[in-house]
Amino acid sequence: GPMASDKRPRTAFTAEQLQRLKAEFQTNRYLTEQRRQSLAQELGLNESQIKIWFQNKRAK
């Protein structure tokens, strides 16, 4: 629909990254900035991508 703007492409996470994020989520529903930074480095992701993933996951 018209609401779907092309400005922010959805990140396609790899299965491996998703597995890691899910495991982290089961341990911590809320990430500290430090955890998020190390996860971002570990997974080669953007911190904001991880932050948003957690927000979306909590919203469900």
Rank of each mutant, 00 (worst) to 15 (best):
G1F: 07
G1L: 05
G1Q: 04
G1T: 04
G1H: 04
P2V: 05
P2R: 09
P2T: 05
P2D: 15
M3A: 15
M3R: 15
A4L: 12
A4H: 14
A4D: 15
A4Y: 14
S5P: 15
S5L: 02
K7Q: 14
K7E: 15
R8M: 15
R8N: 15
R8W: 15
P9A: 06
P9R: 04
R10Y: 13
R10K: 14
T11L: 12
T11S: 10
T11A: 10
A12Y: 13
A12S: 14
A12C: 11
A12E: 12
F13T: 02
F13V: 04
F13N: 01
T14Y: 02
A15W: 10
Q17D: 03
Q17A: 05
Q17G: 02
L18Q: 06
Q19P: 01
Q19D: 09
Q19S: 13
K22L: 13
K22W: 12
A23C: 09
F25H: 02
F25W: 06
Q26R: 13
Q26E: 12
Q26Y: 09
N28L: 03
R29W: 07
R29C: 08
R29V: 05
R29L: 03
Y30G: 04
L31G: 02
L31D: 11
L31S: 02
T32M: 03
T32E: 05
T32H: 05
T32Q: 04
E33Y: 12
E33I: 12
E33G: 10
E33W: 09
Q34T: 13
Q34Y: 11
Q34W: 07
R35D: 06
R35L: 08
R35V: 06
R35K: 08
R36K: 10
R36N: 07
Q37S: 10
S38D: 08
S38G: 09
S38W: 10
L39T: 00
L39F: 03
L39R: 00
L39Q: 00
A40H: 02
A40T: 03
A40Q: 03
A40S: 08
A40D: 00
A40C: 04
Q41W: 07
Q41S: 09
E42Y: 03
E42I: 05
E42Q: 07
G44P: 00
L45Y: 01
E47M: 05
E47C: 04
E47F: 03
Q49R: 09
Q49E: 08
I50W: 01
I50L: 06
I50K: 01
I50E: 00
K51N: 11
I52R: 14
I52A: 12
I52S: 09
W53F: 10
W53D: 00
W53K: 00
F54P: 00
F54A: 01
Q55P: 02
Q55N: 08
N56D: 07
R58G: 05
R58T: 06
A59F: 08
K60W: 04
K60E: 11
K60M: 13
